[in-house]
């Protein structure tokens, strides 16, 4: 797709969702759209480091939780949640640098394992630290609704805020693909040694990307907390959240601009409808389903839904070419 085509697609999505947010007042659907947008942003963040840079993360909830807790802490102390956005993003970026610095010196799966471990440590820490509300987490105070407090009485307004972040993430990804860093990440993924031979500092490129990922996922976490008005360790830092983010990235298609958005669509539909169908609490069985889905996609179509879309387009083009000799 050309930049123009991407921008047109993004414009159509943004306009449609804006119209939906302002004109449609079904809270259930608007909550789904909000969740979808938040997961699309989280999936995009995951896509930067695990798709473009090829470093699979299984601990993305760490950054999501960072942003969520920052939001909760600032709101609980009656500070503006707007300060929580940069604060959570900065903490997440620093954590990313701390995790990435030792791991990116190594090849192989060390990074993936470290991401699981660090997210697990963060979850345990949040469960036990009084300052972070222990296992109960935070009930956030209800503030006067409005853009200053990022709390809204109208669900549609949450969708608009999440939509703004989603549009930003999409534009940033388009920019990344066409930047020096984007070229370097592709080169590193394809052949790290050859990349280094022409002057690419692989570790610096991965660290930069990972820090940006952390910041983006934290922003999504902050918005989520403002909407949920509750932040707890399991809900924001748990392994199931990390798996869900990875699922969103993998299902839609790695290293594509629209993959995470497609993945988020599938995930939200599965989580809300599938999760309910699979009975009771939706715990356990739905995770099995996601795990199975990741396996099927990885072994059958590693390029995900975006790749399937591309194949269909090519098949249609071939058919047209045959039809008009």
């Amino acid at each position: 797709m050309t930049v123009r085509a991407h921008l047109i697609a993004l414009g159509i999505v943004a306009l449609t969702l804006t119209a939906l947010a302002l004109g449609y007042h079904n809270a259930f659907i608007l909550n789904l759209v909000f969740a979808g947008l938040i997961f699309a942003v989280l999936g995009q963040s995951w896509n930067w480091i695990s798709g473009y840079a090829g470093q699979i993360s299984f601990g993305h909830a760490l950054f999501f939780g960072c942003g969520a807790y920052a939001s909760a802490l600032f709101a609980a102390r009656h500070g503006s949640p707007w300060l929580a956005l940069p604060a959570g993003a900065a903490v997440a970026a620093i954590l990313a640098l701390l995790v990435g610095f030792p791991c990116f010196a190594l090849r192989g799966h060390y990074f993936s394992i470290a991401t699981i471990a660090v997210a697990a440590i963060a979850e345990i820490a949040a469960t036990n630290l009084a300052a972070l509300g222990k296992a109960n987490g935070f009930e956030m105070p209800i503030l006067a609704p409005g853009i200053a407090t990022l709390q809204f009485s109208d669900k549609g307004h949450y969708v608009l805020v999440a939509l703004a972040l989603f549009v930003f993430a999409q534009l940033a990804t388009l920019g990344l693909e066409r930047s020096r860093l984007g070229f370097y990440l592709r080169a590193i993924r394809l052949n790290q040694e050859a990349a280094a031979s022409v002057g690419v500092d692989a570790r610096a490129a991965k660290l930069t990307t990972y820090a940006a990922c952390g910041a983006l996922a934290a922003l999504a976490g902050s918005l989520y907390a403002q909407q949920a008005l509750y932040v707890g360790p399991e809900d924001t830092l748990g392994l199931p959240i990390s798996i869900a983010i990875a699922l969103v990235g993998v299902v839609g298609g790695l290293s594509t601009v629209w993959g995470p958005a497609l993945g988020a669509l599938v995930y939200v539909a599965l989580a809300r409808y599938g999760g309910a169908l699979l009975g009771g609490q939706g715990h356990g069985l739905d995770l099995l389903l996601y795990g199975g889905l990741i396996l099927v996609i990885v072994s059958w179509r590693p390029d995900g839904l975006a790749g399937i879309g591309r194949s269909i387009r090519r098949a249609l083009e071939r058919r047209e070419a045959r039809a008009a000799p």
């Binding site: 370097y184 080169a187 990349a195």
Partner: peptide, 26 residues
């Protein structure tokens, strides 16, 4: 100071232009 490899090490999935662009970006 740049070397080439005896066993070629291309960026296999890139176009020729993209692969050379990676070098030029230095």
């Amino acid at each position: 100071l740049v070397r080439t490899y005896q066993v070629v090490q291309p960026f296999a999935e890139m176009t020729v232009l993209d692969a050379v662009t990676v070098g030029a970006l230095l």
